[in-house]
């Protein structure tokens, strides 16, 4: 007997509105396109980043094939950097699964850090393509599943448009200078995210993985980065998630203070501890390992991972990162089966 009395869209939207849901939702704010989905459409991975329809269909296929409760575009982390003038590589020659990367940075040295953001940033690069993909997905699955998208956080975006090496050292040596850059980038991110909201995204995840405690001290996170994240979340009107991967237990409270509606953490976070720290009301999404559990794990490993997320207090069973596309179909089915059994 099914415990489900809502469809996926209702479930996810109610969760964001702090209303009661029939069971714990199982979705993501990051990429979850699968090789199986691409195969069903006859698309090559390298091609789906450059065509709104193909992008939307690919993203929707994870819901259609497995009942995973959302569709999320885009799949790569270069959209904002490209709109700011970076050149990207989509590895068009490759048959392998390679995500687009930045080929040519915008800022090449410290002297070039004083950039300004064009007024029409949300019309540049592939931003309009992602807007269109959101609209198409909305038509295709928007009545049944939640439609999500993401933007990078300002620090992670700074690491895309200049050498990460320099950015990290300067955030220590010249925090004011880095702060000014983050402020400018925050403006760009707000414009782009608002255009996604206008296109019909049900929720937006801000991915600030560059600010993980594996890399930066919680003190630097709080002083240098948190104020700008706060600015983003105060400007966005819809449902929002702040995602940071790696070590996050020491910054979980700051993540919540950013004003994001929900926080998302990966498998390195002790979620039970985070739940205790943030209290019962906080929305915490996480935190199964999307590769070592979902792609390569056996049935029992997947089922117990789903149960552990729920037992630890996750508000949604949600991956720690993008789901690697080669995930075997039976593993996706196992996960959805377990959430239907155990999620109530």
């Amino acid at each position: 007997m099914s415990i489900n009395t809502m469809n996926s869209r209702e479930r996810v939207l109610k969760l964001f509105r702090d209303e009661k849901v029939d069971r714990v939702p199982c979705f993501s704010g990051m990429g979850n396109v699968t090789t199986e989905g691409l195969k069903s459409l006859g698309y090559k991975f390298a091609a789906v980043h450059l065509d709104a329809k193909m992008m939307a269909q690919s993203a929707a296929s994870t819901y259609k094939l497995f009942g995973f409760e959302c569709g999320v575009v885009p799949f790569d982390l270069c959209v904002e950097a490209e709109a700011l003038g970076a050149r990207i590589n989509v590895y068009a020659h490759s048959e392998d699964l390679l995500y687009p990367t930045i080929k040519e940075k915008v800022i090449h040295n410290e002297a070039e850090m004083e950039i300004s953001v064009p007024e029409d940033i949300a019309e540049r690069g592939r931003v309009p393509l992602v807007q269109e993909a959101i609209s198409i997905m909305k038509q295709e699955i928007g009545g049944e599943a939640a439609v999500g998208t993401y933007v990078l956080g300002p620090f992670t975006l700074a690491g895309q448009i200049m050498e990460l090496n320099d950015l990290l050292k300067l955030s220590f040596k010249k925090p004011d200078k880095v702060g000014r850059l983050l402020d400018v980038l925050t403006g760009a991110i707000i414009k782009i995210a608002k255009s996604y909201e206008a296109a019909g995204a049900d929720y937006i995840t801000v991915r600030e993985m560059g600010a993980t405690s594996d890399v930066l001290s919680p003190r630097v996170f709080k002083n240098l980065i948190l104020p700008y994240l706060g600015k983003i979340f105060s400007e966005l009107k819809g449902s929002t998630v702040l995602h940071i991967c790696g070590k996050t237990n020491d910054i979980a409270l700051f993540m919540k203070e950013s004003g994001a509606k929900a926080i998302s953490v990966d498998q390195k976070n002790d979620l039970a501890e985070t739940r205790k720290k943030l209290g019962n009301e906080a929305l915490i999404f996480g935190n199964y390992d999307p590769y070592n559990t979902l792609v390569t794990g056996d049935e029992e490993k997947i089922r117990s991972a789903v149960r552990k997320c729920i037992d630890d207090g996750a508000s949604a069973v949600w991956p720690g990162c993008d789901i690697w596309p080669t995930v075997p179909p039976e593993n996706m089915k196992t996960m959805m089966d377990e959430i239907n059994k155990y999620g109530g």
């Binding site: 220590f172 890399v215 930066l216």
Partner: peptide, 8 residues
Amino acid sequence: YFVPELLM
């Protein structure tokens, strides 16, 4: 120490 210090 974190990564910025390590780099320096």
